[in-house]
């Protein structure tokens, strides 16, 4: 299954004001993997995601999705394969109703109407938002917006899902629901996040970015418990792996 592989080879990128954001990033993600991209603010996470959907193009180096190298000419094919969920659902939802928003992608793909309807229905059912189909997206709650934003991407049946901070701004239950949802997917998932607990739960593999370079790439459970990796990159152990402050206090007292 080589067509679901995501490969970055020595990707470098500098913004127009000269700030270099990526300084030679290389990795290879294979079919069905769930990979977390973590790193401090400004480590280059969003810039990297921008490259995966061809929103930014590397100053040097290549991005390969399956057998296709990302260029202006292959953009349309790449964007069918890679579905991107943006950090801000408000940026992603722009049609007058949820239904039309989810249908936007499939309609643009030129699918016949009955298939569009079927895809919209199944995408909304997957995220549990069928009841909102005829509401305008800007009146939904944060959690609902996020779910609908994911549905808009699912409706295009991408092979690879790229997500920027999927759990930001969600309440604990909505976050839990999101994790369960993402767990159930079989897509290749690439998730940029500051939520290290989410990374730990969802992604067997983690890529740690630091100053535009891959600082570490390996099993999440190993990397996120290794102070030698975390500290220089401005990260901390996931909360679930940190000692419970209440228990620790009682332990000291006794």
């Amino acid at each position: 299954m080589s067509h679901h592989i995501v490969e970055a080879t020595d990707v470098r990128y500098a913004y127009s004001d000269g700030t270099s954001a990526l300084n030679g990033v290389s990795f290879r993600i294979t079919h069905g993997e769930a990979v977390a991209i973590v790193g401090a603010n400004g480590a280059g996470k969003s810039t990297l995601l921008g490259h995966l959907v061809g929103w930014l193009s590397p100053s040097s180096g290549t991005i390969r999705i399956g057998d296709t190298i990302l260029t202006q000419q292959t953009l349309a094919i790449i964007r069918r394969t890679v579905g991107m969920v943006f950090q801000e659902p408000d940026d992603q939802l722009f049609m007058p109703t949820v239904f039309e928003d989810v249908a936007f992608g499939p309609v643009n793909m030129g699918l016949p109407h009955d298939q569009v309807h079927a895809r919209v229905a199944s995408a909304l059912a997957t995220v549990g938002m069928e009841h909102l189909a005829h509401r305008p997206p800007y009146h939904l709650s944060g959690g609902e917006k996020r779910a609908v934003a994911i549905a808009t991407v699912l409706a295009m049946s991408p092979d690879i899902l790229v997500m920027d901070e999927p759990s930001s701004g969600l309440d604990p239950r909505a976050r839990r629901r999101l994790i369960a949802l993402l767990m159930s997917f079989e897509h290749t998932r690439i998730i940029a996040t500051h939520d290290l607990d989410l990374a730990l739960e969802l992604c067997p593999r983690t890529i740690v970015l630091h100053k535009g370079q891959v600082a570490a790439d390996g099993p999440t459970a190993k990397l996120l418990t290794d102070p030698a990796v975390l500290e220089p990159c401005g990260l901390e152990k996931p909360l679930s792996l940190q000692g419970c402050p209440v228990c620790a206090a009682t332990g000291r007292q006794s």
Binding site: V53, A76, R80, M84, E88, F104, V107, N108
Partner: peptide, 19 residues
């Protein structure tokens, strides 16, 4: 610009189509 990129990611090519 972010909205535009999000639209492009879903196959927007200058035409708004509906079902």
């Amino acid at each position: 610009q972010r909205v535009h990129v999000a639209m492009c990611c879903r196959g927007f090519d200058g035409h708004v189509r509906t079902i």
